[in-house]
Write a protein that binds this DNA or RNA. Sequence first.
DNA 1: GCAAGATACTTTAGGCTTAAAATACTTTCC
DNA 2: GGAAAGTATTTTAAGCCTAAAGTATCTTGC
Lengths: 167, 167
Amino acid sequence: MEGNVALDAETKVTESPGDHKDELRLWLRLLACTALIEREVRSRLRERFDVTLPRFDLMAQLDRAQDGMTLGELSRRMMVTNGNVTGLAERLVAEGVLSRRHAANDRRSHMVRLTEKGRRQFRKMAQAHEQWIADIFAGLAKNDVEELLALLGKAKAAARSALGRKS
Amino acid sequence: MEGNVALDAETKVTESPGDHKDELRLWLRLLACTALIEREVRSRLRERFDVTLPRFDLMAQLDRAQDGMTLGELSRRMMVTNGNVTGLAERLVAEGVLSRRHAANDRRSHMVRLTEKGRRQFRKMAQAHEQWIADIFAGLAKNDVEELLALLGKAKAAARSALGRKS
DNA sequence: GCAAGATACTTTAGGCTTAAAATACTTTCC
DNA sequence: GGAAAGTATTTTAAGCCTAAAGTATCTTGC
């Protein structure tokens, strides 16, 4: 609380009032880093499996749910709108990788799940995907990976709390 | 290179062959973190300034170029396709925040730059944007911000090198 | 039981994004 | 100087994404 007279001399240099440049740089770097990798992943998914990232993402959510889940649950987990999931699921059903049926108790709800074909396809893609990511981060020391994980965890928590803790 | 007999006992526990789970978790967390913030920024830009993130991004690139730049340069910096910039710029010109003219020497090229109106608008948005980001990361210690910056720098470099150093 | 509100999903209109093909111009190389 | 190759941009077709409005079904409170 006190003792800042001594600190002043040190902090003044880098810290003008209302200076949030580091946070801004952090955000831009986070964005650039993600965009770089995401573009590559999208491109490989398209080239090698003829699938889009959103479809892969949807299948990934379903891969863990043996009994499928409702469209609403899916949209919450994917953090996208309901309307978005409607269209995505429609295309995947048409491709035969998803099946769809009414929920048991609630006729408003629709459950979707991977078909056997879908699960097979997804497992193959997921394996390749994991290897791509491993290769992309191969130049990063084990230690750095762990620190990044921890710090991003903190960042996510900070952001969530700043944004009102929704989700 | 050698001495791994002693190390084995320690590493074996967490490190099965072909285990890239941490890298995958890192990627998923990076993605989630970015998506969380990006959605919020998009939403605020739309609500408070009636502008989309891509338009804001394009204006940000131009804000630093007094004399404007070509569409090609813009698409390289934004890391999107040419066709994308064509449409984006078209809408911004229609709104009166961008002006467009032929390049001096090359009749294939088109230069775009912010109009005075565009620059005024952008500055206002940029200021709010910087504050939003500061608030979002407010729960993060100064130290954490700096470590994250450094580690993300490493990660970006690693990714770039793994992806063949393009860009 | 039934009206009012909530919930699950779909539809719509509009903008973003890409890859691939097309157009217009410039440069290179004989 | 003129063909061939390269470069800058636009167009096209298809998919992703959102907010807002619409439809169908459930739940609540009386």
